[in-house]
């Protein structure tokens, strides 16, 4: 019944805000081989947009660097890893709290991690100061 072949892809792009829509559209197109519902697709694209935006504006803030995305499909689950080699996060527990933003003056809502957590099935963040941040998320789509 489920003949989806396992698959993977890697995407590397410059930390420019114009690439936010490119990144979520590309992951969305990759995920579409699982025939997601419109809601599932919107959840994935929104979570990707949050992680990519964070890499660009927080990770690299005024510098430029590469953002890496690696996606894997296994059965009906999509695993998405988004990483930057930017400034890293000093206090991860605090950063992940709803409504916390390290730079509220930029009109950030502090809801990025909460959105990723809510819209995906799993979220795992690792970060090292001055080395960078990696966000891993997964979502199992309904059969």
């Amino acid at each position: 019944m489920n003949n989806t072949k396992d698959n993977e892809m890697t995407l590397i792009f410059k930390s420019k805000s114009a690439n936010e829509s490119f990144a979520r559209a590309t992951v969305g197109a990759f995920a579409s081989q699982l025939d997601p519902t419109l809601d599932e697709l919107a959840d994935i694209k929104t979570a990707v947009s949050e992680a990519v935006t964070n890499a660009i504006i927080h990770g690299y803030n005024n510098t430029t660097g590469d953002v890496h995305i690696h996606c894997e499909i296994k059965d009906r689950t999509i695993y998405i890893e988004i990483s930057d080699k930017g400034c890293g996060i000093k206090n991860l527990a605090q950063a992940m709290q709803p409504l916390y933003s390290g730079c509220p003056e930029m009109e950030r809502s502090g809801m990025g991690f909460t959105v990723m957590e809510t819209f995906m099935d799993s979220l795992d963040v690792s970060s090292t100061l001055d080395k960078g941040t990696t966000v891993r998320m997964s979502k199992t789509l309904r059969a």
Partner: peptide, 13 residues
Amino acid sequence: TFMDSSGIGLMIG
């Protein structure tokens, strides 16, 4: 057709 938490920040501002 799409909005992420940046839109929330914009509306609160």
